[in-house]
Computed example of a mutant assay.
Amino acid sequence: MEFTTEKSSNYNNLELMPVKEILQHMNEEDQTVPLAVAKALPQIEKLVEVTAARMKAGGRLFYIGAGTSGRLGVVDASECPPTFGVPFDMVVGIIAGGDTAIRKSVEYAEDDIEQAWIDLQEFNINDKDVLVGIAASGTTPYVIGGLKMANQHNIATGCIVCNSGSPVAAEAKYPVEVVTGPEFLTGSTRMKAGTAQKLVLNMLSTATMIQLGKVKGNRMVDMQLSNNKLVDRGTRMVMNETGLDEQTAAKLLKQEGSVRKAVDFYKK
């Protein structure tokens, strides 16, 4: 069975194209991605709902994947603590081949059907948790094996894939299938498929954190104040919520450690 992510590009003789034409065609292909994601919104909604419910009950969110898919999961997981002020182990990204594979490809790591479950044991994954497998092709053995074992242990399972009718989606109880079609560069799923996966991950983690009360209005009130830009942003947020002048707001923010705590302290 040939999946659409592996089908030949709609363009040929790329090496003969002027740079302007290459960029125009890539951009044209990229514009189809949000439309493909839109078709999957009902599936994404179900995955967000079960994830939020499990996490409200004390569960965690795990991502597993290989190559680009694995890296995207690691990125999304690593951005949750600074953005939403959650513990570093509340959202966990695991890549086939270990952290080395984030920077350097680890040969055949994705072909080990048993390793994902072994990797997950380091975190004592259990039936309170959610496991999302990320695989553009939907055929990655590492992801299939992890989802299969998670199902056997009553762990909620989801996936983000870019083909329909894939083995990964068959294993996931809450599959998300964003069919992105042939890539501009045949088979290069770090392009449209990777973009689609990033969009879905943005939706999944952000919508879940909103459900968990980590956002107020439209503000990241629990964000970590880890650099001057974020301190300045937090100070403005405190000023907007309290009417305090900049110096007083900055002092209160530093004292309390987060926008939420600073505003709550002021309103006591």
Rank of each mutant, 00 (worst) to 15 (best):
T180W: 01
K39E: 13
S105M: 12
P81A: 11
V200Q: 04
E183N: 07
F265Q: 13
K39W: 07
K267R: 15
E171P: 03
L225T: 05
N10D: 14
A193F: 03
R71A: 08
N202A: 10
H153E: 09
V92T: 08
L185Y: 11
E2F: 08
N154P: 02
A172K: 01
V48P: 00
V50A: 08
E6R: 10
M191L: 15
R233P: 00
K20D: 13
N12V: 12
L201M: 09
G97K: 02
A135E: 02
S188L: 08
V143I: 07
R233I: 07
E2R: 13
K56T: 07
D30Q: 12
E29L: 14
A96R: 02
V130N: 01
Q121K: 15
C159M: 06
G217E: 14
D232S: 14
Q24P: 00
Q224I: 13
K56L: 12
N12K: 15
T51L: 04
A250W: 08
L204V: 08
A136F: 05
A116D: 01
D127M: 09
G138H: 04
S226H: 11
I64C: 07
L120D: 00
Y174E: 06
L72R: 03
K251I: 09
K104C: 10
M1W: 11
D30R: 08
I22M: 12
E171T: 04
T208I: 11
G234I: 02
A116N: 03
M220H: 03
G213W: 11
P34S: 10
K229E: 09
Q152S: 12
E122W: 04
L41W: 11
Q224W: 07
I94Y: 03
I125E: 00
F123V: 05
Q121M: 12
C162F: 03
L225N: 04
V33L: 09
V168R: 00
V143Y: 00
A172D: 02
Y63V: 01
E183A: 06
G181Y: 06
R236F: 08
G234K: 03
T157D: 02
S69Q: 05
E110P: 01
D119I: 05
I95S: 00
A53Q: 13
G257Q: 11
A77V: 06
D89N: 15
W117Y: 13
Q211Y: 11
N240Y: 11
Y266E: 13
V215L: 12
Q24G: 07
